[in-house]
Design a protein around this nucleic acid. Structure first.
Lengths: 99, 99
DNA sequence: TTTTTAACTTTGTATCTCAAAGTGCTTTTT
DNA sequence: AAAAAGCACTTTGAGATACAAAGTTAAAAA
């Protein structure tokens, strides 16, 4: 049976991961530290959420050295964009149904 | 620090509970069985989610007998309406930021 | 009296979430 | 050269969560 909540992705239910995706949707790439500050989470927590999203292939990572310091940047994959869009559309339809 | 995800309620993060609230927001009251079918969940699972929402005082329950059968109806409390609205507004602002 | 329906409650497993602490690598400071 | 600091993890461990399945209760129907 198809319900109103079927278009929701388990991976985006968590508030931190929702925040990560929302941030990555409007920024080509984002640095680890920027996300960490933006969402106000510990580095360990962010790392584990990022790993979960990477595992699902919703985000990708680019590691380099900038100014001789390690730099980790994340970006959304095409798959991630598609999935997140569907998730948001589902949320939107839930919201719209309220008005 | 205040982040974009601060207006989200832990109680509404779960897809089933989000569905329950969305359904209750547009129906004065809903019966246990209706909700169960609408969301396609087991009775035990629904009962525990309802209990969680009741505990938070976001929904109330009215038990009676209709046609000599036990009937359980749920409704949103004022508190629940307010909280859910804030949750949806936060989601909406996240969605809007994407466009 | 047995079965059925409604609405739970209990049980048990698996998963999730998070902070805190520990790690490895590199650069900066002393 | 040694120590400290920064970045980005990884590990650990505790507590919370989610779910199906099975068991329970109470009333009604067969």
């Amino acid at each position: 049976m198809k319900t109103i909540i079927d278009g929701l992705y388990k991976a985006f239910e968590n508030r931190v991961r929702l925040g990560i995706m929302a941030a990555l949707a409007v920024n080509e790439t984002l640095e680890f530290t920027a996300l960490k500050e933006y969402l106000d989470v510990t580095d360990g927590n962010l790392a584990s959420h990022m790993k979960a999203l990477e595992k699902e292939k919703f985000v990708g990572v680019k590691k380099s050295f900038i100014d001789r310091k390690p730099n980790t940047r994340y970006y959304m994959t095409t798959q991630g964009k598609k999935a997140f869009e569907e998730h948001l559309n589902t949320l939107e339809s839930i919201i719209k149904a309220q008005k």
